[in-house]
Amino acid sequence: MQNKIQQLRKENKVTQAELAEAVDVTRQTIISLESGKYNASLLLAHKIACYFGKKIEEVFLFEEDEKE
C-alpha cells in the first residue's frame, strides 16, 4: 500500500514530529509509513486523513492485488 503522507506533510509544512503528536504515534511510525515499511491500521489511516482534511483513499493508495 502506497501513501501520500510525505507529500501532504511537505505541502502543509508539517514536521514528522508534529504529525506523530497529532495522531498519537511515535515519529518512527511516521517514518516507517512514509518509507512504506509499515501499513497503517484503519484507525490510524483515518486519523491521518482527517488531519490533512482528506478522505482515506486520497492519502492511502490501495493496489488491486491487496484488495483481493
Partner: peptide, 11 residues
C-alpha cells in the same frame, strides 16, 4: 503510552 502502545510497536 506512545512508546508502549504505538500500533507499530505493538505489531
Amino acid at each position: 503510552r506512545l512508546k508502549n502502545n504505538d500500533e507499530r510497536i505493538v505489531e
